[in-house]
Design a protein around this nucleic acid. Structure first.
Lengths: 326, 326
DNA sequence: ATGTAAATGTTATACGATTGACAATTTTAA
DNA sequence: TTAAAATTGTCAATCGTATAACATTTACAT
């Protein structure tokens, strides 16, 4: 692969001049610029960004750590992140951490080794300590990592409230929430709390079903079937849309009608669900806005490692009414 | 961030020794090794991979160029790629090229600049020339790029045949294929050909509807609605599952029953569709195997730039029978 | 023609790590 | 005790680029 020197030789100028052209500093005549650019084109030259970064420039790389990209929610989020960062001249290193703490740790190390300019962290298998010693700008999606790391999230609490209101308005009396296993700093916690608080106002009670985020759809389906076949609940809030789809699936299999026999509200409202399952009532997270805020904050931190940022940035959710509630 | 020298100072040895420890060459006493490792841990040291790569080592980075990751098919594919490459010590730079040739070109340049070890290309907005002058190991998914670049794909032709057979066996008489706009080297072409050839055997005719891959679901839905409302066809093969979902959606809206009024076969068979739409009959691409082959070939090329590889690697598809055909 | 500004070249250093050559020290074995 | 082997250090070059300092050449205006 061609180097600076090759270009210099071909253009008949000094390496310094080529560098001057590339970085556009010092004074240069149009003629030399043209010569150099031509040589660059001829050799299909790309400045070695390893060398540039080593010499103090940024890498223009951002690490994105997420549970995984096959989930439509994170798929869309990555798509947004990539899209917005590309426009600002950054590329992303994709890190699917799954629910594997060791893998997440490995990725953190690699990102440090690669001297990425910053990290967007949306997967959270690790404790605080590991994130603290990274020493790179980090923005977290939806979970507390450390005092220094801003959290961007949708208004989970209000989302929970909305779900409760919607189910109640729809006439549900026996309510159920299906949610991921609630670790202390999990966002689904706030969804639960909002749901709970809202129901408390009307003195309605409800049951909680916890299903691990990492359970397979089959497992989830089984548990849901078990729940539904008791025919005790008439209103369900799933803290993610995919689970809601499974509820619809199982309900259908059991001959239960939605919303007549059981109302249903999901959470996330991805483009995917909006397009392919518009019938689902759901609480939409403003993914695009969330990403915009995360990137904005991250770039600020990259620009100035010590700049003051808020601890929390909470973006409003929106109820999308489908046919699974009345 | 700590450097080699910092470690050397803290451990009270020379930089060379630290390097020896890290790269495990020369002779070393246990005592020094321990000292050095301890210093590394204490400073949370990560060798600067920019510097290492500059000095001739590989970057352990692979560029992955795809249309986008919000599509479940490519979402799952990226997940697989990431998963398998991680185990082999590689990370990926994710490049969503969409249907934007300029963006794909930009990404190619960036990948060169970043000295990635290789590229997996699954998005194809660019001509052959651009890929030829990249000068890096490349493996292509499902499309011809240049004589030097191996193509890995599912057996699109046979997939088309399977779809045709299934619809015929199901009793369809008036057949329709819905497929992306067919550019010369598009994989959907082979699906079409297989479909066509199989129908020809039985002297059945069919219509072709082309809908651009990049059209929004709404647009696609409209076109499908138009088609269905004529009530002329009773068997449809969609060359991707998402479009098949839209057909089901529109059919339902029009009061048509699947499979009674119209049979339906999709293509892709992602985990997502299998879990959340098991009712859909579809031709499954062996994503995991495809990825395995691509990675295997890519690593061979990385190891030896000039190693001989086949032009084509075609992996078998599998029919998954749901309820949208009888 | 002369001075000034602009354009380019020369040279050196740095970024952080790798690696080879060789010297110096320590350990081990006979 | 001594020679051989193992360990560690010193020094320098290298990867490709950036950049500062300084020297030199060229162009242009007066």
């Amino acid at each position: 692969m061609a180097t600076l020197d090759d270009i210099a030789k071909l253009a008949g100028v000094s390496a310094t001049t080529v560098s001057r052209v590339i970085n556009n500093y010092g004074s240069l005549s149009e003629k030399t610029k043209t010569k150099v650019f031509e040589a660059m084109r001829e050799l299909n030259y790309q400045p070695n960004s390893l060398a540039r970064s080593l010499k103090g420039k940024k890498t223009q790389l951002i690490g994105v750590i997420l549970p995984g990209v096959s989930n439509p929610f994170f798929g869309q989020m990555v798509q947004e992140i990539e899209d917005q960062l590309f426009k600002k001249g950054f590329r992303i290193i994709l890190c699917n951490a799954g629910s594997d703490a060791e893998k997440e740790r490995d990725y953190l190390r690699m990102l440090m080794a690669n001297r990425v300019d910053g990290i967007i962290a949306g997967s959270h298998n690790l404790g605080i300590e590991e994130y603290q010693k990274v020493g790179l700008p980090i923005i977290s999606f939806d979970r507390y990592l450390s005092d220094e790391i801003p959290i961007v999230s949708s208004d989970n609490y209000h989302g929970g409230q909305l779900a409760a209101q919607t189910l109640m308005r729809s006439g549900s009396k026996k309510l159920q929430i299906i949610t991921g296993a609630n670790r202390p700093n999990s966002p689904t916690n706030a969804r639960l709390t909002g749901f709970k608080d809202e129901l408390a106002k009307s003195d309605l009670d409800f049951d909680i079903m916890e299903i691990s985020f990492s359970a397979t759809p089959n497992i989830k389906g089984l548990k849901i079937k078990e729940l539904l076949s008791k025919r005790e609940v008439d209103g369900i809030f799933c803290t993610d849309d995919l689970t809601a789809l499974l509820v619809m699936q199982q309900a259908k299999a059991l001959g239960m009608r939605v919303p007549e026999d059981v109302k249903l509200v999901g959470y996330d409202g991805t483009n995917f669900v909006q397009s392919y399952h518009p019938e689902l009532t759901t609480v939409m997270q403003p993914i695009s806005d969330i990403v915009m805020v995360m990137i904005d904050l991250l770039l600020k931190r990259i620009d100035d490692h010590d700049c003051e940022l808020e601890d929390n940035y909470v973006l409003p959710v929106k109820l999308i009414t489908g046919e699974t509630t009345v």
